[in-house]
Each structure stands twice: as C-alpha cells, then as structure tokens.
Design a binder for these strands. Structure first.
Lengths: 236, 236
DNA sequence: CGTCAGGTTGACCTGTGTCAAACTCCGTGG
DNA sequence: CCACGGAGTTTGACACAGGTCAACCTGACG
C-alpha cells in the first residue's frame, strides 16, 4: 500500500504467519495497531451482503496498513497467499511517537494507505477497459519490483502472489476476463508467463503505454473569478 | 464529503464564489488549506490524458475538503453549480490547533475526505449494476438531506445540484444510462422528478433496498491460526 | 418567445459477463 | 514413483447490460 518507511524489528511488538485466505485481524485486536507485511501478500477486502467483494488494495512486502479506511472496523484483511506479518501495537506506536515523532507521523500516514494511488486506482476501475485495467495492474506490479524498469526498458521477472480472482476483484472485473487479457499480452509479446504465477515483463515500456490512464496533465484550468466575492455577514 | 464539525465564521480566513464549472484551487494557493462548502456543490475530479474523468467525490454544503488525496496536488475541485466556499488557511489551522486541538484533528480528518464512504463508493462503482449505482447515489443524497428518511419512510424532496453527467462520472457510467435508470425509478413509483433537478423520493425504503450493496455483515471470519508463529530472529 | 444547454428516449452494437469444458499445476496417498 | 484429485487457470460459445450514436424534447433564461 505505502512504503515510505519500514518498521525495524526493534519497533515491533509481535509477529504472525497466516496461510492463504486466513484473516489478519481478529476480534481480540485493539483498533489502532499497525501491520507490516514481511513476505507474501495481504488483500484488503470490502464485502457486501450479496456475496460480492472488491479488493480495495494489496499490501505487498514492506507495505503498512491497519488505520482509518484500512483498519479492522472498515475492512477485512486476508492473506492472499502464505504471508508473514509483523505488528506494532498502539502502545508501541505511542512510544515511537515520543522518541521519533516525525518518523511516527510518516508511518501513521502510510498505515492509512498513504493515499498514494487511491485516486488513480479509482480512475482505472471506473473508466478503464479490460485491457487497460490489466496492463495498469501489471505495470504497477512491475514498478513495485523494479523502480527503473520503465525507464531502461529491461525485462523484469516477478511472482504474482495472488490468484487471478483477486486481481479481478481489485480491478472490478471477472477472472476469466483477466485471464484473457493476460493471454493477449502474451500473444503481443509484451509479457511471458513462467509456470502459473510468475510473470516476465519483456517490454515494460509497452506495458506502461497500455496502462496510459495515469497522466493527468494538460488539463486547462477553467474560468477564474475573484477570490473573495462575498462576506460571511451577507449570509441569510 | 464529511461533516463531523462545521467551521464557524470566526475560524475562517476568506470566502469565495465560484460559478458552474469554475475551479476552486488555483496555482497561487498554498497547500494545506481547508475548504468548506457553504452552498452549492463541489465535485472532486480526477482526469486522465485521454479526456476521461471520474468524480471521486461530491462535497455538499457543510462538507470539508482540501487535504491529502482531496488536496490541490492530487485532484481538481470544481464547482458543480454556482457555489459559495469558505477557506481556512494553514496559519488559521495552526491557530485552531493551538486553541482547540481535539476539534482541529476532527476537522483535519474531515478535510481528508473523512474516509467515511470511500470503500462503499468503491464497492458500488466496481461491482454494482447500473440500477444499483443510481439507487445507491440517490439513497445517499436522500440520507444527506433527511437523516431519518430511511426509518420513517416519509417522502423527501431535494435538489440535485449537479448535472447528470457528473453523476455518471461519479458512478463510472454514461449519462444516458443514468437518465434511463432515473426514468425507471419514476416508472416504479419510487421517485418523482420536479422540473429538471429536483427529486422527490416517494419511497425512501424501497430506494434504500435497491441500493443494497452497503451491508457488510454476515462475513464469516476464515480459519484462525496462532497469533505468533515466527520470531524475527528466524528471518533469513 | 426564441434559443440552447442539458436531458430523455430509441435503435443498434460491442465488450464483458456467464456458463461450460478442458487443461495445468501441485500436493497427497497408495 | 506414479496415479489420482482438486483448485486454479485457460479457452470457447453465447447472451445481455450498458455504451454509442442520433433524434428529439424540455425547461431555464435572456
């Protein structure tokens, strides 16, 4: 979700392992704890009564979650595959806040989801077509594993820790469609699959090009008016 | 967006009026200011290069915005109709933080979007069908104008401050489809339209029923494992 | 009373969901 | 070591919700 600062073992309170599909949060948990993914992958899921779900975000190794809209009251956190997680309790957080206030605030922000790509994700899901959605997702995964892949355009190989269905629910589509779009990218020679879960991105730049929903420049500002046109006294 | 606490005129720094489609933020603005809608409606919009847009949220009278993912760096804020807005500058916020720290924090949270219905909105947009989306939106508007409409099931009348196209982009659909679904709700006798922008909800409960994506109970927690299964020393 | 942006309605078409069959891993037990 | 089984994935055929395009309507405003 967000990885501006990694918690060190010295900070942490407890450690746990969750097998695929197991819940991270439990009723006994106090709200206000911060979780860090050590290995594996956590999916943050919103359910509705009719059984439909959507994966609001994936937390990859190094990512934090647990506060605000990504907290236990708001959302379910489930292991997308066998996953190790470490936890910082509210008391530990308070200690950290005393000793290193600036760092603590960064961590708190990150555990809220860091607002990093929320709007972009929303844009993709609400406006993108199937091919753009999948390309965007794989592009983001590529960027997660290799920051410079887009610029130097070298092949990148990585593991997709989650099943196709999780990807589908993250992108607001069905897993068959995800599968089809992955196949199409293979036909186009942009990616390869190794086994079932491993992806080799042959042309990171082409992939990024197909995910081209990100850019939000060249928006011209609309009509400008004076900044102050009324005074509060004028209110009814 | 969120309305846990209204800024009073005493708190505020400046006041402005924006005509339909005008921008709220301008380059001269310092980041960190908080805006409050006094009357009208503000749409918070994310653009992409290809011209597609999505309305991440509407800020109704009383709602706050301007920080984090709803701030000037992340998003465009535009008047959905002629709109009066008041503004609290960072310096004013600091003053407030000194005098009333608790209230200041509530306000800061609200100006982030208050995370109130983000996940639900996302669920609706990514999983809902056209009829559910429109019903959900009208239901939320109804709730905004009459908190008890759902329980007592009395008719409620209110103004839709934004055009159909804004609703469509808020729900990830096209305005023609929004129009069709509104017509269907009229045929069903659940709502009436008065003029072009006024809505009379005849059966709030039926409307809420058709928006039934909200409930997120009856999710059974998955398999439980021990809380601590590994120690950091065991890491490779 | 004329004008025009915004809204409604209709006909058609396409992308994606749905249903179903087959295939691929991978683990398990004989 | 191999057969078996099952979850996850791929692929195909088909249906339909909703997008697209176009014509028309409505009501707000000068």
């Amino acid at each position: 979700v967000a990885q501006p600062m990694r918690l060190s073992t010295a900070d942490l309170d407890s450690f746990m392992l969750r097998h695929t599909d197991a819940n991270i949060f439990r009723e006994s948990d106090v709200a206000g704890a911060i979780y860090q993914v050590e290995s594996g992958c956590v999916r943050l899921v919103k359910y509705c009564a009719c059984g439909r779900r959507c994966v609001v975000a994936f937390a990859m190794p190094g990512d934090l979650f647990g506060l605000g809209s990504q907290g236990p009251e708001e959302i379910d956190a489930e292991a997308a595959c066998d996953t190790r997680i470490s936890k910082l309790n509210p008391t530990g957080l308070k200690t950290l806040m005393d000793s290193e206030p600036t760092r603590a605030l960064t961590i708190i922000d990150a555990a809220h989801g860091g607002q990093d790509h929320h709007n972009e994700h929303f844009l993709v899901v609400s406006q993108g077509h199937a091919d753009e959605k999948v390309a965007w997702f794989l592009h983001r995964m590529t960027a997660h594993f290799s920051a410079q892949a887009k610029s130097n355009d070298h092949p990148v190989t990585f593991d997709l820790p989650m099943p196709r269905n999780d990807i589908a629910e993250h992108l607001g589509m069905k897993f068959e469609t995800v599968s089809r779009e992955i196949s199409r990218l293979k036909e186009l020679g942009i990616i390869e699959t190794i086994g079932l879960r491993k992806i080799k991105v042959l042309k990171p730049r082409d992939l990024a090009g197909r995910a081209s929903l990100d850019a939000h420049e060249n928006r011209q500002k609309a009509e400008r008016g004076p900044v102050c046109e009324w005074m509060p006294e004028a209110l009814s």
